[in-house]
């Protein structure tokens, strides 16, 4: 269960001792009591905002939910809203920006690949494959909302495919993430996205779409 948003820390301080709250992004604390429930609390999330995630026993989950929902500022958020937030923050999601055919270098996750290590599974494959495509952001400048798996064209030739797309509430316009051939990743590149049979103008822009 995730508690996310600018007030998440203030709210969490009401439900647990302040010393139980992890301070560093991507760190966690085990066996801490949140509203009387034993949890692992991590300072993580997939929304692009400050926030925390709770891991507890399945039998405790409804109790934790009820305890959180007693805090008046909180509103429940489903996966659709979460996916919009992670897309605005340009966070790659497995099955979309990443899968077993996309290398971490293509997905823009080079920071997590340590080539100075002597050996790791996939090192040889990564080095021999090279990087032929890259993850980019697109804003749709024509009419239409690109979703995932829309082909991308430049001068009539397919150069890539969208991996996620939606209407971006923060920018008030449609955006997408895409994998395109490496020669077309420059910011400002004009492309066309095929949305349900129609080619619509789009532009390569820098990621993320939203940064807190």
């Amino acid at each position: 269960m995730a508690l996310q948003g600018p007030k998440s820390r203030t709210i969490l301080e009401r439900l647990t001792d302040e010393k139980n709250i992890p301070r560093k992004y991507y760190s966690f604390q085990e066996n801490v009591m949140v509203a009387g429930i034993n949890c692992l609390v991590s300072k993580t999330g997939y929304t692009g905002e400050e926030g925390y995630e709770f891991y507890c026993g399945p039998e405790d989950a409804p109790k934790l939910w009820d305890a959180l929902m007693k805090e008046e500022e909180l509103i429940p958020c489903g996966l659709g809203a979460r996916d919009t937030l992670r897309l605005e923050a340009a966070m790659p999601l497995y099955g979309h920006e990443m899968d077993d055919t996309i290398t971490p270098l293509e997905a823009g996750l080079g920071f997590a690949v340590k080539f100075d290590k002597e050996e790791f599974i996939g090192k040889k494959a990564l080095l021999s494959k090279g990087v032929t495509r890259g993850r980019v952001g697109l804003t749709i400048t024509g009419r239409g909302i690109a979703r995932e798996n829309c082909p991308i064209y430049r001068n009539g030739e397919q150069i890539g495919i969208t991996t996620s797309g939606t209407h971006c509430p923060y920018l008030g316009k449609p955006v997408a993430m895409a994998l395109v051939n490496i020669e077309f990743i420059q910011i400002g590149t004009q492309v066309e996205v095929e949305i349900r049979g129609k080619k619509v103008a789009a532009e390569v822009v820098s990621l993320p779409f939203y940064k807190r």
Partner: peptide
Amino acid sequence: ADVESVKAV
């Protein structure tokens, strides 16, 4: 015609 919400078409 089609209409789109944030979630779906």
